[in-house]
Nucleic acid binder design. Sequence first.
DNA 1: TGTACATCAGTGAACGCGCGTTCACTGATGTAC
DNA 2: TGTACATCAGTGAACGCGCGTTCACTGATGTAC
Lengths: 232, 232
Amino acid sequence: VDEATPKHGYHHGDLRRALCVAGYELARHGGLHAVTLREATRRAGVTAAAAYRHFSGLDDLLLAVAHLGLGDLARSIERRQGLVAETEQVPQAVALLEAVGLGYIDFARAEPGAFETALSGLATMEHADDADSTGDSGRTPYQLLTDAIGRLVAIGALPPERAEPAAVLCWSTVHGFATLAVRGPIRTYPAATLDALADELVRGVVTGVLDQESSLDQNRRPSGSSSPRSAS
Amino acid sequence: VDEATPKHGYHHGDLRRALCVAGYELARHGGLHAVTLREATRRAGVTAAAAYRHFSGLDDLLLAVAHLGLGDLARSIERRQGLVAETEQVPQAVALLEAVGLGYIDFARAEPGAFETALSGLATMEHADDADSTGDSGRTPYQLLTDAIGRLVAIGALPPERAEPAAVLCWSTVHGFATLAVRGPIRTYPAATLDALADELVRGVVTGVLDQESSLDQNRRPSGSSSPRSAS
DNA sequence: TGTACATCAGTGAACGCGCGTTCACTGATGTAC
DNA sequence: TGTACATCAGTGAACGCGCGTTCACTGATGTAC
């Protein structure tokens, strides 16, 4: 992800790459909305039409930019996981799952524009097998999440049929916090407060997911479990 | 929120209202991005410049549209709260808080475009005291949340100093799920599955928030509770 | 009650903007003989 | 090794688009006498 090194090989060298990087920079500073074919080509020192040699159109560039964001998100998670100390099997596996959530929140707070772009729904996160969308371990953010949960299943801390709902619940929780911390009402909180809240949130959801009693008996309470639809 | 009833009183009747409604309709069908001064005025059967008699510009209209969305969101929450059966103090208060989350998720799923617009950060949710942003009870979505939590505090189910973090955690969790259910990876899940997941999620977070043991001792585990910043 | 006037909501035309996309082109690169 | 040629990455000009915003205007409304 280094800039303005045109390493001439052919005409431009690797214009596709340069456009991706320029687009990603735009995303970082102005969010999804700021990523534009014309501005990306301008940054790359090239005519707008040149982009069409490497992308089918704007959407194609946006997708590539989103993949770059997912890669950085994966690296942010990997960094947190790298800090997990070795200990007994279960607590370590728990810590690795918590690191997924904490790294996710780190990235959203450090790079709100890139986060917004990566998670805007352009790249369907599960199927993002693009090389750019993986971290140093070669895994996408989603794979890092499912791997951490798979590990808990493997050591018997989570029943296999709970793996998928667990992934959804963890991801929802962390994603919501990240969103609110970036452009929601808690964006003005001091960083230390957000750190503490993030820790608590992540610990809470992981604990909840592993707690059989609260997660297995879905019909615990008789009050309406179906949903009234259509608002106003 | 009815359409095309110009109830002539002055020139147009109430053009400001008509433009809000037209803009809200655009938001419902196409999301924030689809709300445009020109299209809203077109829908209202009026020249684009006419909007400037009632709004200072596009942002002003967007804010008004977001407030309408918050109002519908509040009503969606109130609908869920209306279904809560009378029972003992604590379980009823718990059910009222859960209803906030469930109504929030209902609204996001039923009206994704309106949801996106209302929560896009235009209206700072806590300070949205506009009349349009309140439900039938005269309270905004945020007030409905803090009221439900305040009730738990009042009956001694939650220590007062936990009220604010509890609000943040509940909101984050529910908001994340709503986002992922609307345009995230679980948007393709069958409705019944999402219903079940939403129930589980909401119950889980409320339980977690009320569970003193997991929420009060913040330094339970020694592993890093500060945060490494800056990604990539 | 009727007329003159001030107000002001909505008009219609125009502005500049940046965008995505197209097209015939040019000129550097790599290849065939 | 040198020349002729095909390839194709990037050019530059142009297209139409819808947007937000401005401006002098008009004509209906409400008010003062």
